[in-house]
Simulated scan of single mutants.
Amino acid sequence: MGKFDSLIFVPEGAILNEGVAERNALRQTLDEVASGFGPKQRIQYAELLSQIKFLTFSDRIELVLQTFCRHELYSARKIFYQKMKEQKQLVKDVGLFLGELSDMDDQIKLILCSKEDRETISSRLDESELLNCFSAVYTQDDFVQRLPNEEVLTTIVQEQNLDPATCLVIGTDLADDIQGAENAGLASLWIAPRNIKTPIHPNPTIHLTTLSDLLFYLELS
């Protein structure tokens, strides 16, 4: 495996704890437009997640809202995405990891590629100040297409003058992040629990349980 000197992070999952964020935003949405997020809804949500893990980010959210808020769908969408701006829970120890890498900017280039708009991702990361770790920040606003469309990552590679052979896309979402990397011909790191089998398609280059383990794959002096 070759050396990676450009890391493209998809923050929803790799940096921000997306599972907690989406569940909290849904609970807060249901508190406003429906009967709340009680035991019945929690069980239904858990069952639904197991069935939709291969959907893209936007398709997954839309299906969840249609399932729980179909009678108030327009209001629910507005509330849910507003609540997502307030979800700032980080993946454990990600701040220390990114801080260590950003201190090595002469060896490693850090780029952020968010699936959310600039206002949302800026709000979610403002308290942590982690945006300062990245030499370039891309959001949904910068593209006509969305992940996993290859245009998203190939545009970043071209604009940042990166070598595709040494780029690594880092994410937790198979349908968006890993498939997007595969479509663009880039290596990928899939962060997922060890007991989850690595899929054949899309097939991540590396499968790790924690982001900090990536240090073993970087040739840093």
Results as ranks from 00 to 15, higher is better:
Leu147Ser: 04
Gln107Ser: 14
Asp163Thr: 02
Thr205Asn: 04
Ser212Gly: 06
Leu96Glu: 13
Thr198Ala: 14
Phe37Leu: 10
Gln107Thr: 10
Ser6Val: 07
Glu159Leu: 10
Leu110Trp: 01
Leu125Phe: 06
Arg194Phe: 14
Leu16Ala: 01
Glu47Ser: 12
Lys197Ala: 13
Pro202Asn: 04
His207Ile: 07
Tyr217Gly: 09
Leu218Ser: 08
Tyr81Ala: 00
Gly38Ala: 11
Pro11Ile: 00
Gly171Gln: 00
Lys197His: 12
Pro39Gly: 07
Cys113His: 08
Thr198Asn: 11
Cys113Lys: 02
Glu62Val: 03
Leu30Tyr: 05
Arg70Asn: 15
Pro148Asn: 05
Gln87Asn: 05
Gly180Lys: 00
Glu182Ile: 09
Glu116Gly: 11
Ala34Val: 10
Val157Gln: 00
Leu153Ile: 12
Val33Gln: 06
Trp190Gly: 01
Asp177Lys: 03
Tyr217Trp: 13
Met1Leu: 12
Glu47Thr: 10
Leu215Ile: 12
Ala136Val: 11
Ser50Lys: 15
Thr67Ala: 05
Gly2Ala: 05
Leu174Glu: 04
Cys69Arg: 02
Gln66Phe: 08
Ser221Asp: 15
Tyr45Leu: 03
Asp141Ala: 01
Leu153Cys: 07
Gly95Asn: 09
Phe97Gly: 02
Glu129Ala: 14
Ser75Asn: 14
Gly38Ile: 06
Lys115Pro: 06
Glu86Gln: 13
Cys69Leu: 09
Asn17Lys: 05
Gln28Tyr: 13
Leu153His: 04
Asp93Ile: 01
Glu12Thr: 08
Glu127Asn: 14
Phe216Cys: 11
Asp176Cys: 09
Thr205Cys: 04
Glu62Ile: 02
Ala165Tyr: 11
Val144Met: 11
Lys109Asn: 13
Leu208Ser: 06
Lys92Phe: 11
Cys69Lys: 03
Val137His: 00
Ser50Thr: 12
Ala21Val: 06
Phe134Lys: 03
Asp103Gln: 15
Ile191Leu: 15
Lys92Gly: 08
Ser123Pro: 01
Leu131Trp: 05
Gly19Phe: 08
Gly36Trp: 09
Val137Cys: 11
Leu90Ser: 05
Asp126His: 14
Ser221Met: 11
Ile108Tyr: 10
Val20Pro: 02
